[in-house]
Design a protein around this nucleic acid. Structure first.
Length: 938
RNA sequence: GCCCUGGUGGUGGAAUUGGUAGACACGCAGGACUUAAAAUCCUGUGACCAUUGCGGUCGUGCGGGUUCAAGUCCCGCCCGGGGUACCA
């Protein structure tokens, strides 16, 4: 009812539905926002994180970033830039495949359908995307280049000397002439071999050796295996031992998998930040994820035999305080060093540790477990014998899988030493303290600063000097060296799933080989079921003839989600190129993304993978910039605002919010779409669910008031707002401006439709500046007044400043203020209203286009120049000084702008109001800041 | 635990470089128009005290500090949101 009334009345004035459709059609048929790769104009590349097209469609949270980037794109066009503003779909993904498993419907069909829905929703909001450049990661013409890049990764290794990826063919040449003794590469093997030894290897042995160097490599690694999803996951896809998608438990398991040697780029990924305009918080998250630690690798000789244990430490100065060593349960020397007496105990511990899930291990961090191997090592500085233990608090994946324990100064070592009654020698003394009896300590002292004590030749040094002295010593002795360690692990790149890019890989005698580039794309085959085979192979193993023309079997794993999303921004530059990933010309013109807007949840996944991928392509000389995203903005989450009704326990009665405390009630989430301004539509409620058909209500003043809460937007909480309904009810321009008006782009904020009416009112007021009571266009050529010009130019200035600092919420209020002021001035003048239409067009493009046309212009408003502020209209002759006493403002006085401060002082002090506040006292001091404030100190 | 964020009216928020705290909007209250309602327009709206008018006191999570002047800078806490977690 409410809804129909609105349509009727709006057709009387601003008919947004008709106008918005008209201009969306116009933009589509005129390709208004097509970006050319050749242009005289300077370029500007604005990118949104492309969406995964889920079945639920867009909710109001999704377009927030898209609206901001669209405003900026349109602004930049007005400013004379050639703007690249594309959109596409991250189309591979688990939900479509899970749906396929359940229903048998091919994920391509589900995906296609979802994309169509997304497109329809996006179109209705009036985005200025260049749709000719749309990409979909699941299209063969797109993933051809994902596969192609994989081949390049396979054919390159990372040269630490030149600090870039170089060709494997060149590496083979070096191996042939001099072996690997002079090679400093990022590698997973340490053996040194000669040219002769290389030549003596079989092809298979050579391939196995090269695998340790390739940027993507096949290896047996401990992976995150998720049984419920039937696939392995990368580290960023696991949080707290559970899969991010679906929340299923994840186990550690050794499997033969493809990995990307992203760790080779760890240092460059860190250094790259200096040049980037990203928020500190997102840089910080990535820095922590990469986790650079400076320290040393030191070898501890075993007391028996010639073997040694290599450890990594950031605190070489504390070696004097090492009283035992600990190995991870997976450590390879365990079997050879364990003594006969300890053997059975060690074996049962290893068995126990192996069966412990990742989740249990993380949940029971405080549970101290471990076993003594019976072996002893020699502390290289004290030369004392120290016991070697095994415990799963030492991780196989970091450092060397073995640690030197410094119980006095490390909390985990301390807890372990206390539990197993091992000695705790103190070696660092914080300044101002005396050495203590460590047996009385309740916890370790993690002394990052202080003086070394009980530490041989470094006793008396401060920690920093001690570290340096010890490293120099171990390097001289040849038992250790300076070392930088990273937390960042190589990314596991295989997935045991159907709906992803096939690897361009076949196997010959168990060794992988790349398909010839001419065979790309290797298209995803049809399968009868989207499940693993009975023997546990991935779904692709079900495909018929999944082999090369020569009969060699093809890889059955597929690539992970981040494969297709790691270089899509580059493909947008030249998306229909079938001969290369993108042309040199296109890349040289577009360079990299100037502005990237998206959610902060991609900090440790997509944003790191993309930077890695881009740096690799940069090393190959394919792209001209080594960082993909110059400026990054993370839009905040839009939370849902839920409504609650209160059922009297055990009845079918619902009591209004204000009266609920008189009853024992149960709160129930109610669909926010049947609530208006917290007032429940009781009739709709009865029809909402069969359970409530006979609901009775206890009302307040004849109305049912709902309670409310801010929480995440989700179907199950019935608080999802989708943009389509709002576009129908208020129009796209109102939705766009309202989403911006909600608050700062980067902050999380609750969605509340209450306020949208205010923006809707504003849009109509704005329309009425150009129209009379009969909705006839009424803009005149009358001469402007100084007051009108001042309003216009003040607004130009403010809006331009706001847009440049991405403060869209304050820009919207400035438009409101401007409209209110022009309305008051009854201004309907062309000279004011034409530039104003351009000013608002990035925000409310449909409205602006319509007004632009009515103003007599023939081209799209997007071709108009952005108005320039003329400061001369803003010059003030006087300033209204706040007069404050001891910092408290009491009254105001107006003075001409150029009044001398001495004159101001005189005038203020003789003012009767001032006399009242002075209470006859003589001011100690009078501070006058021109055009700011007068402060009188008494 | 560690790291990053944020905390301002009934609500969303503004205050860009230390200079009149609460712009703009929602909501609410009152009024105009109307047979009535919707829409629109006008007025008021931080709290408290006073109210006949003038006014006054307090106030940006809490406690200190720097300053003529602090939402803004410094120190110490509290609370919310996000990230990360045996990383040696």
């Amino acid at each position: 009812m409410h809804f129909i009334k609105k349509i009727v009345y709006t057709s009387m004035d601003y008919n947004y539905n008709e106008i918005e459709k008209k201009w969306q059609d116009y933009w589509r048929s005129n390709k208004t926002f097509k970006a050319e790769n050749i242009s005289e104009k300077p370029k500007y590349y604005v990118l949104d994180m492309f969406p995964y097209p889920s079945g639920a469609g867009l909710h109001v949270g999704h377009p927030l970033g898209y609206i901001a980037s669209d405003i900026y794109s349109r602004f930049k066009r007005h400013k004379g830039f050639n703007v690249l503003h594309p959109m596409g779909y991250d189309a591979y993904g688990l939900p479509a495949e899970q749906y396929a498993i359940q229903t048998g419907q091919h994920p391509a069909i589900t995906t296609e359908k979802n994309i169509a829905r997304y497109r329809e929703q996006l179109d209705k909001i009036g985005f200025s995307f260049d749709w000719d450049r749309e990409v979909r990661t699941c299209e063969p013409s797109y993933y051809k280049w994902t596969q192609w890049t994989f081949i390049q990764l396979f054919n390159h290794y990372y040269n630490n000397k030149t600090n870039k990826a170089e060709s494997i063919a060149d590496l083979v040449k070096i191996f042939k002439t001099e072996g690997n003794k002079n090679v400093n590469a990022s590698t997973t093997q340490n053996d040194v071999f000669t040219a002769e030894a290389w030549k003596a290897m079989t092809e298979k042995q050579q391939q196995e050796m090269l695998m340790h160097y390739r940027m993507t490599y096949l290896s047996d690694t401990m992976v995150n295996w998720c049984p419920q999803l039937g696939t392995v996951l990368a580290n960023d896809e696991v949080v707290g031992g559970l899969s991010v998608r679906g929340g299923y438990p994840v186990e550690r398991k050794s499997m033969r998998q493809w990995s990307l040697r992203i760790s080779a780029y760890a240092d460059r990924l860190l250094q790259g930040f200096d040049k980037l305009d990203w928020s500190d918080s997102i840089k910080e998250i990535q820095k922590n994820w990469i986790g650079r630690s400076e320290g040393a690798e030191v070898d501890f000789k075993l007391a028996e035999g010639e073997q040694f244990l290599r450890i990594f430490t950031t605190r070489p100065d504390t070696i004097f305080g090492v009283s035992f060593m600990v190995l991870c349960p997976e450590h390879e020397v365990i079997s050879s060093i364990t003594t006969f007496e300890q053997k059975s105990e060690v074996e049962s511990y290893l068995q126990w540790a192996k069966n412990r899930s990742e989740r249990e291990r993380q949940a029971e961090v405080n549970k101290i477990t471990g076993v003594f191997t019976g072996a002893y090592a020699i502390n290289p500085l004290t030369h004392e014998e120290i016991p070697v233990w095994i415990s799963d608090y030492v991780l196989a994946g970091y450092g060397t899988g073995a640690i030197m324990a410094v119980p006095a100064h490390d909390s985990r070592d301390f807890a372990f030493a206390r539990h197993f009654k091992l000695p705790i020698p103190q070696v660092v003394l914080p300044s101002g303290e005396q050495p203590e009896d460590t047996s009385l300590w309740k916890e370790s002292k993690d002394s990052k600063e202080g003086t070394c004590i009980n530490s041989g030749f470094i006793s008396g040094m401060n920690v920093k000097d001690g570290i340096k002295a010890v490293i120099d010593f171990v390097e001289k002795e040849g038992i250790g060296k300076r070392m930088i360690n990273f937390r960042l692990r190589d990314a596991i790149f295989s997935r045991q799933r159907y709906w992803g890019e096939p690897f361009p890989v076949y196997y010959k005698e168990g060794m992988p080989y790349m398909l010839d580039e001419s065979k790309l794309p290797l298209e995803l085959p049809e399968v009868d079921k989207y499940l693993p085979t009975e023997s546990g192979e991935p779904p692709l193993a079900r495909a018929k003839n999944w082999q090369t023309e020569d009969g060699f079997p093809l890889e059955c794993n597929t690539m992970p989600g981040f494969a297709g999303s790691s270089a899509y921004y580059l493909r947008y530059m030249d998306p229909r190129n079938d001969n290369e990933i993108f042309s040199k010309e296109a890349n040289t013109y577009w360079q990299n993304v100037d502005l990237y807007i998206g959610g902060a949840e991609h900090a440790t996944g997509h944003l790191i993978y993309s930077r890695f991928w881009n740096k690799f392509l940069f090393d190959l000389g394919l792209c001209v910039k080594d960082e993909p995203f110059q400026k990054l903005i993370n839009q905040g989450m839009i939370q849902g605002r839920s409504n609650l009704v209160y059922r009297v326990v055990g009845t079918n009665q619902f009591v209004s919010y204000g009266l609920k405390d008189n009853y024992e009630t149960q709160a129930i989430h109610v669909d926010v779409n049947i609530v208006d301004a917290d007032i429940l539509d009781t009739e709709k409620f009865r029809n909402w669910m069969p359970d409530f058909a006979n609901a009775e209500f206890i009302l307040e003043n004849g109305k049912y008031h709902c309670g409310w809460e801010v929480e995440k937007m989700s179907k199950s909480l019935h608080n999802v707002q989708n943009p389509d309904d709002l576009v129908i009810k208020y129009g796209a321009d109102t939705l766009r401006m309202y989403e911006m008006f909600l608050g700062p782009l980067e902050q999380s904020k609750p969605w509340d439709t209450k306020g949208i009416e205010g923006v809707f009112r504003f849009i109509r007021k704005f329309w009425k500046l150009y129209h009379n009571e009969n909705n006839d266009f009424c803009v005149t050529d009358e001469k402007t007044t100084a007051a009108e010009l001042k309003v216009l130019h003040k607004t130009i200035k403010k809006i331009t400043e706001d847009i440049e600092r991405f403060s869209f919420n304050t820009a919207v209020s400035s438009f409101m203020i401007c409209t209110n002021e022009l309305n008051e001035l009854k201004c309907h003048k062309h000279e004011i209203l034409q530039p104003l239409a351009v000013l608002i067009s990035p925000y409310a493009p449909h409205l602006a286009e319509e007004l632009w046309e009515r103003l007599g212009n023939l081209n799209s408003i997007s071709t108009a120049d952005y108005p320039v502020c003329n400061e001369t209209y803003l010059v003030e002759n006087t300033f209204n000084y706040p007069i404050s006493f001891n910092g408290k403002t009491r009254f105001q006085m107006e003075f001409p702008i150029d009044t001398a401060t001495s004159d101001i002082e005189k005038a203020v002090l003789s003012n009767p109001d001032a006399q009242k506040w002075l209470e006859g006292k003589i001011p100690k001091k009078v501070i006058i800041v021109p055009k700011k404030i007068v402060n009188i100190v008494i």
